[in-house]
């Protein structure tokens, strides 16, 4: 068992509180899930069995939820007020994209899935601009 000198001396921790320890953020996570949503929408009309259709809709809803989750993490943890100053449409981009992820749960129209991917591409462009700054 490893016992540090500081714990022996009873020195308490103080937190230099930071973001996720890995510090890894990337809109690619949301994009990959959104691509799954779109592909399921495209395949849906060709499914022959009702069970397959139910399963497709179920998985599409799960993936759309993951899109929301990944976008929320980016929005709330990665982006900072100084990014908003340079990209004033940032909040609206995230709001519209997460709403669109919700819309994709209600439909199997691939056009809606493509709109979601386009919105994530816009967020990705802002993300890359902040990384380049």
């Amino acid at each position: 068992m490893k016992i540090s000198m500081t714990s022996l001396l009873g020195i308490k921790p103080v937190y230099a509180h930071c973001d996720l320890p890995c510090g890894v953020y990337d809109p690619a996570q949301a994009r990959i899930e959104a691509e799954s949503v779109l592909q399921i929408m495209k395949k849906y009309p060709g499914l022959d069995h009702q069970e397959d259709k139910w399963r497709a809709v179920f998985i599409k809803e799960q993936r759309a939820d993951l899109v929301k989750q990944h976008l929320w993490v980016l929005w709330t943890d990665y982006f900072k007020p100084e990014h908003l100053e340079k990209h004033p449409n940032l909040h609206d981009l995230f709001w519209q994209a997460t709403k669109q992820a919700g819309n994709c749960k209600k439909t199997v129209d691939p056009a809606e899935g493509q709109v979601l991917l386009d919105m994530i591409a816009e967020i990705d462009a802002v993300f890359k601009a902040t990384k380049a700054a």
Partner: peptide, 14 residues
């Protein structure tokens, strides 16, 4: 008060 630093937010100072 004596404390031990946990986390990276005060780098490079602490």
């Amino acid at each position: 008060v004596i404390r031990r630093i946990v986390g990276n937010s005060m780098l490079p100072t602490l």
